[in-house]
C-alpha cells in the first residue's frame, strides 16, 4: 500500500467533490469530474484509475449511463454508485448485470465506501 489507488469520483455538485476528495485523501488518490462526459474524458486521460464512484442524477448523463459507456471502454475499472436516491430498479439491474459493484446511499458512510472499494479491487486483482 505504498502507492494509493487512484479512483475517479463523479458528481455534479462541487461541494460533494471537494468533501469526497478531502475525506478520502488518506486512502485514495482521488480525481474528480463534474459530469459523466468529463468523467469519460478523465478516464481516457488517466490510465491508472482503478475504480469510479459516480453520482446517479447528473445533468446530461446519468451515473448508470456514464458507467455503462465507461465500462465499454474500460472493462477493468470497478464502478460504484453513490446517490441520494433509494435503490431503484435500474440500480438493482445494474448490480445484477455486474455493471456496478455496489450501491452507496447518501449521506455517505466512509467506512463502507473504503471497505467496499478495497474489497472489490482486491477481488478484482485476484
Amino acid at each position: 500500500m505504498s502507492e494509493k489507488t487512484t479512483i475517479l469520483y463523479v458528481d455534479d455538485e462541487m461541494m460533494n467533490l471537494m468533501l469526497f476528495k478531502r475525506l478520502f485523501k488518506d486512502h485514495f488518490h482521488i480525481l474528480t469530474a463534474e459530469s459523466g462526459r468529463m468523467g469519460l474524458e478523465v478516464l481516457a486521460s488517466e490510465k491508472d484509475i482503478k475504480a469510479v464512484v459516480s453520482d446517479m442524477k447528473m445533468p446530461g448523463m446519468s451515473g448508470l449511463e456514464f458507467a455503462s459507456r465507461a465500462k465499454n471502454d474500460f472493462p477493468d475499472v470497478v464502478f460504484f454508485i453513490l446517490t441520494g436516491f433509494d435503490r431503484s430498479p435500474e440500480i438493482v439491474e445494474a448490480l445484477n448485470s455486474k455493471l456496478i459493484s455496489k450501491y452507496f446511499g447518501k449521506p455517505l458512510n466512509p467506512t463502507e465506501i473504503i471497505g467496499s472499494i478495497h474489497e472489490a479491487l482486491n477481488i478484482d486483482r485476484q
Binding site: 455538485e13 460533494n16 469526497f20 441520494g84 447518501k106 449521506p107 455517505l108
Partner: peptide
C-alpha cells in the same frame, strides 16, 4: 434532495 444536503453535512 434531502440526502444531498445530508451528504454535505455528513461529509
Amino acid at each position: 434532495e434531502i440526502n444531498n444536503p445530508l451528504n454535505f453535512i455528513k461529509g
